[in-house]
Nucleic acid binder design. Structure first.
Length: 288
DNA sequence: TTCCAGGTGATAA
DNA sequence: TTATCACATGGA
């Protein structure tokens, strides 16, 4: 990656030197891996990370990819480069075999997606909610859950403060009345969310330990599946988007469609190499 | 009204 | 081991 150049104008940090193929915010935030980044204007997104509300804007001027953000330079360097995984050159991390035409097409369409390093607990809750649900409803359910069960905070927004809610902790979930959880629209997933909160609180499942690179993807998935309501699909999503196990390969209805249409009903993720999960996201983005 | 959504657990064979 | 079914909710 070329060296990043920074410019600060009117309090907004501007970043140049990242190509469109390396980071495309629209694809990254809309590819279904995250549910709390919302488009608030043309090429502009707003999201809450580390209890701070951030704005990101991406513009392509004369082929130059310019990212503007409310994050400070220190926040960008200390947190977001890692969050967007920008210290890794994706092009060397996966393989799409010759003759895999759908794989090549998906790569072309999806290039610019980054696999975000999201909070593991938030990812676990989010993907339990995602089951048998559509993306707009997942987003609204998560918002209602945060509003109903999260602790209030003063969020920093462009220097000012505004009250908001923190993503509910396992303790928050366990101390929230079931009726409140129901009102968030969780449906039959309420006991699953409670089971997840208990597993984390009792350390039956230790997300921090699973994050370690020495823990294999299979070990992490097996442990996550101890939680009632977490099956192979949700466990793979948590492993990929929350634990950064890049070879996780979630198989959902859309990927089954991909398999049926392009791979004779069966995809072998191992052919795509150590970042197979990234290829999965290219495919998911391309088919939807 | 019916169908569907980034599935899973329980049950039966 | 695999196949089938119920499960809440809300948008299209």
């Amino acid at each position: 990656m070329a060296e990043m150049k920074y410019d600060i104008r009117r309090g907004m940090l501007s970043i140049q030197g990242i190509s469109r193929n390396e980071l495309d915010l629209s694809k990254t935030f809309d590819c279904g891996q995250c549910f709390r980044w919302n488009r608030v204007g043309q090429n502009t997104w707003c999201g809450i990370v580390n209890d701070i509300k951030y704005f990101f804007k991406q513009e392509f001027i004369n082929d130059e990819n310019i990212i503007a953000t409310s994050a400070t330079l220190a926040e960008w360097e200390r947190f977001f480069i890692n969050y967007f995984n920008l210290d890794v050159d994706y092009s060397e991390k996966y393989i799409i075999p010759e003759g895999d035409t759908f794989g090549k097409d998906a790569e072309r369409i999806g290039k610019g997606i980054r696999i975000l390093r999201q909070d593991p607990w938030e990812t676990l809750v989010s993907f339990i909610i995602s089951q048998q649900n559509n993306i707009p409803k997942i987003k609204s359910t998560i918002e209602k859950l945060v509003y109903g069960a999260g602790n209030p905070i003063n969020m920093k927004i462009n220097g000012g403060d505004k009250s908001g809610k923190r993503f509910p902790t396992p303790d928050n979930i366990l101390s929230t009345p079931t009726s409140t959880l129901q009102q968030a629209g969780l449906g039959y997933r309420v006991p699953y969310i409670i089971a997840a909160a208990e597993a984390i609180k009792l350390k039956t499942v230790d997300l921090k330990a699973l994050y370690d690179d020495n823990v294999s993807t299979k070990e992490a998935i097996d442990e996550l599946m101890q939680i009632k309501g977490v099956g192979p699909k949700v466990a793979n999503c948590v492993a990929l988007f929350g634990l950064h196990k890049m070879d996780s390969f979630p198989m959902d209805v859309w990927m089954k469609r991909v398999a049926n249409r392009h791979y004779n009903g069966n995809i072998d993720p191992t052919v795509y190499g150590e970042y197979a999960g990234l290829v999965q996201q290219y495919m998911f983005y391309a088919i939807r």
